[in-house]
């Protein structure tokens, strides 16, 4: 069986004031297409580092990271930017929308860096916003939208480049429970449509949505349960 993502013996060390912190310490993880995974772990477990690693925002100190036949651990800044642009859709806890730009402009951003023409950009951004049910909020700025709506804009933005994985970091952390449920429903639908989703969270309720639950402890995979 072939994997989209294959992490082998990943180590990531930080030097904090002369002391080496082993954030990831020999971690192995394989992810196949159309999986719905949750990654859990207490703070300091290496969960965030793992998320940054999968998201190609960070590279390992040692070990190999293969993403659809590309060797991420060998990449430079420019190549990492390119793989993030083409293959990863980010959804953040704090939404991370550009505050002065409309929802449509926000969703367009990844397409700008993919060098897609203006017309196609707008068409695809609109399509993506319609998919998350925001067809009547396209020209609103983030501060004119509710938290749930903002997160839906972020999801639209994550989907617009048709990425191989959607990487969500505490996507419900800043939302009330009703909006949180809405967002999780969107993730379920996306998974049903064939998307691969990786959900990083510390809430068990949220994690239970996923089909596979991974627990990280001391920079290693502690448990890997399919439900």
């Amino acid at each position: 069986m072939s994997f989209i993502i294959s992490l082998k013996d990943i180590e990531r060390f930080y030097d904090v004031g002369g002391e080496v912190v082993r954030a990831l310490d020999g971690l192995d993880l394989n992810i196949s297409a159309n999986e719905y995974i949750s990654i859990m772990g207490p703070s300091g477990s290496g969960k965030s580092t793992l998320m940054n690693m999968i998201g190609c925002l960070d590279t390992p100190t040692n070990g190999t990271y293969e993403f659809e036949n590309e060797y991420v651990h060998e990449m430079d800044e420019g190549q990492l930017a390119s793989i993030r642009n083409r293959k990863i859709g980010f959804v953040f806890q704090t939404f991370n929308l550009l505050p002065k730009s409309s929802a449509l402009r926000n969703v367009e951003v990844p397409l700008i860096y993919a060098n897609i023409s203006k017309k196609e950009r707008i068409d695809r951004a609109k399509e993506s916003l319609i998919d998350v049910g925001l067809e009547d909020r396209m020209h609103h700025k983030p501060n004119e939208l509710s938290g749930g709506q903002r997160q839906r804009v972020a999801i639209a933005r994550a989907l617009v480049n048709k990425p191989s994985i959607i990487l969500a970091d505490e996507p419900t952390g800043n939302l009330d429970s009703k909006s949180g449920v809405e967002i999780l429903n969107i993730f379920n639908q996306l998974h049903d449509k064939g998307n691969t989703i990786i959900l990083v969270t510390h809430e068990e309720e949220v994690a239970k949505n996923a089909k596979r639950m991974i627990l990280i402890l001391d920079g290693k995979v502690k448990s890997d349960i399919k439900n």
Binding site: E77, A81, N85
Partner: peptide
């Protein structure tokens, strides 16, 4: 700074 972070996460290269 945060905007730069967002843009980079979404695929902006250092050159961009």
């Amino acid at each position: 700074t945060r905007e730069i972070g967002i843009r980079k996460a979404l695929g902006a290269t250092p050159f961009n």
